[in-house]
Design a protein around this nucleic acid. Structure first.
Length: 199
DNA sequence: CCCTGATTCGC
DNA sequence: GCGAATCAGG
């Protein structure tokens, strides 16, 4: 494979979107993540500042070239948000007490998924912290399709499979588990963390 | 172990 | 220019 104009374009797009080199490589096909990284550097866009996403405030470690940065590329990515979030709290250590649920009167939970894939917590009570983490993680999800899942990507389904607003979390699964840390938290509940029958 | 990007250097 | 190998982290 060669770096055609289109492939380079896709590379630029995905890179500025914050996609990892390996993901870009998979998307492009026929190249490794090394190739992608190499190309990225050759293109001189090691800095991922493109206006979209959180400004990394990256310290330009090496930029002896006061090159003008031609990046008036506005990316009007319309994102349908089925789940209205309260507010973008960065790293809520633990506000202490808050009602994580009871914010969407009409809406059901954000994790419908009627398939046997996700072990639904049924009527079990999940730690509010875990739920908060899940909804928070959704924003960072890679939004992978079914075929993009690997053995080490979180297979937690998000959204409604019947609509377009459906994807898999795709974040790195922490262990031999099928989910990322956040989703493991709600998937595998320590049953009744109240049974301390210490012998 | 899994992953990430960064750099080098033979091609 | 290209990218595998390697390096240096998380």
């Amino acid at each position: 494979m060669s770096w055609t104009d289109e492939r380079v374009e896709l590379l630029k797009k995905m890179w500025s979107e914050g996609q990892s080199a390996s993901q870009i490589a998979k998307e492009l096909g026929g190249v490794t993540r090394n190739a992608v990284i190499g190309k990225v550097h050759r293109l001189g866009l090691s800095n991922r500042a493109a206006g979209t996403g959180p400004a990394p405030a990256a310290a330009a470690t090496a930029a002896p070239k006061p090159e003008a940065k031609p990046k008036p590329a506005p990316k009007p990515e319309a994102r349908a948000k089925p789940a209205p979030k309260a507010e973008p709290a960065e790293e809520p250590e633990d506000t202490g007490s808050e009602e994580v649920e009871a914010r969407s009167p009409a809406r059901k939970q954000i994790i419908p998924a009627g398939q046997p894939l996700p072990p639904q917590p049924s009527a079990n009570e999940i730690s509010p912290e875990a739920l908060a983490k899940v909804s928070e993680v959704e924003k960072k999800s890679k939004k992978l399709t079914l075929m993009e899942l690997t053995e080490r990507t979180c297979k937690w389904p998000v959204g409604d499979p019947a609509t377009e607003d459906f994807w898999f979390c795709g974040l790195p699964a922490q262990s031999g588990k099928p989910y990322c840390e956040a989703h493991v938290g709600v998937a595998f509940q320590p049953m009744s963390a109240r049974r301390d029958r210490r012998r």
